[in-house]
Design a protein around this nucleic acid. Structure first.
Lengths: 259, 259
DNA sequence: ACCCTCGCGA
DNA sequence: TCGCGAGGGT
């Protein structure tokens, strides 16, 4: 039996909304440690890896491992049925054919329950190796989101060049060219505003803005984003959950051009 | 070489947004005194005349006159890429094929640059004579905007009758009739709330609300609007820029009806 | 161009 | 806590 209770329904709502635009169906793998999801987007380019640690729940119990094959579109609709401050509990049997979502109002005596039919979804669970990266950037997630939104007006590709004292984002298109240059910067008062660059080797990589645009849907999950880059290697874009866990996106750079 | 730096990107944003709904393409004429634009709206009825004086810039330099043919739609997108408080600098060569827009964050080490391809736009530069008008009205721009918004629900035309002690706006349509009457009024504490009428001759004129609706897009540029009217003469609607300059609209009254 | 959502201020 | 304004998405 799985029983996971969130203190507020917003967390799960944000998580599902962060992913549902690029992944329609996925397996929630529930273990005693929490819930993980691995999925590729519909074009099989972007790899999504989610961990909701058991610390993210106010109560959590998972007697034996269980896999919930969920249609995120429908699940998202269900989650929106609660009020943001409601307790949200996920419930499933050991061999479930459905998952129950229960909302409880904190003050009032109001309980709502929604059961969602599960699906059988094949997916190999990929073992993702911990990698060495050439560069690790830590920056405000909202700032990264703005850069992606602004530059996607100009072309389909975003080039990222990191040197020891700057990060440069560039997009070149028909009507014009845009670039944003960030210098590492430490804000004492608001550390989440800081831009931090750890660099072993400079990198010069290009990514599809279509996919980056899916990635930034997760902006509300964390005030900062960590970007790990290495030549000819899928980049890692990570949003850490305050309460324990993360949402990670792996995206391979474009190879073909100019070399 | 042209180099014009605004202390805040909002001013240019407001100016472009005020005009781009009625004018798609226009020439920015840059001289040592500042930047002027003259253009007619797509239906060739409304004449727009902009002056951004060099005092509007925190730094301004224009070695020789240069004309920048700009697609306002694209330009508006670029200007939105800055944050409102950023410095905004326009840069162009002497014979440019593009104009560069540079944003600089005031605190952080962030610089973004956007280059926009220029276009070749024909437009005669019209000499607009200083006119004698029968009536000059000065009033809060927001109040004028509300009158236009409210009365355009009723018909396509707005009638303005000015007598020595009142200004009457009327719109008569199928479903009903509306009118707003203003008396001249002086607010000592908030002069920008005053309604001021200088009248040499009474006027009774009618304008197309479609065009007035374009004009009021400029409301945020100034807390007051100056309206100059004379019989059978294009009316002048002027928003003065605090920092030096103006945005003027010239609109001919309707003739044919009822006389 | 219009509608919806999020953030900030009262 | 509610309302208003701004920004982003469809």
């Amino acid at each position: 039996m799985l029983e996971g209770k969130f203190d507020e329904s917003t967390l799960l709502k944000k998580i599902v909304d962060s992913v549902k635009d690029c992944v329609k169906l996925c397996n929630f793998n529930c273990t005693e440690h929490g819930i993980t999801v691995q999925a590729v987007d519909d074009s099989r380019v972007l790899l999504v890896s989610l961990l909701v640690g058991q610390t993210a729940f106010s109560e959590y119990r998972c007697d034996r491992d269980v896999t919930l094959g969920i249609d995120l579109e429908s699940f998202s609709k269900i989650i929106k049925c609660g009020n943001n401050e409601d307790y949200l509990t996920l419930l499933a049997e050991d061999s479930p054919d459905s998952v129950m979502t229960i909302f409880e109002d904190k003050k009032k005596e109001r309980v709502s329950e929604y059961s969602l039919k599960l699906m059988n979804i094949d997916s190999e669970f990929l073992k993702i190796d911990d990698m060495e990266y050439d560069t690790v950037i830590n920056m405000p997630s909202s700032e990264f989101a703005k850069i992606v939104r602004d530059l996607k007006n100009l072309s389909e590709s975003l080039n990222i060049i990191v040197t020891k004292d700057s990060v440069k984002f560039t997009s070149e298109g028909e009507v014009g060219t845009g670039s944003v240059v960030l210098k590492p910067y430490t804000d004492m008062d608001k550390p989440e505003e800081s831009v931090n660059v750890h660099l072993d080797n400079p990198v010069d990589l290009t990514f599809g803005l279509k996919y980056l645009n899916d990635i930034i849907k997760a902006t509300s999950l964390s005030s900062t984003i960590t970007i790990k880059l290495a030549d000819k290697t899928p980049a890692l874009f990570e949003y850490k959950l305050d309460v324990g866990g993360y949402l990670r996106f792996y995206l391979a750079p474009k190879f073909d051009e100019d070399e």
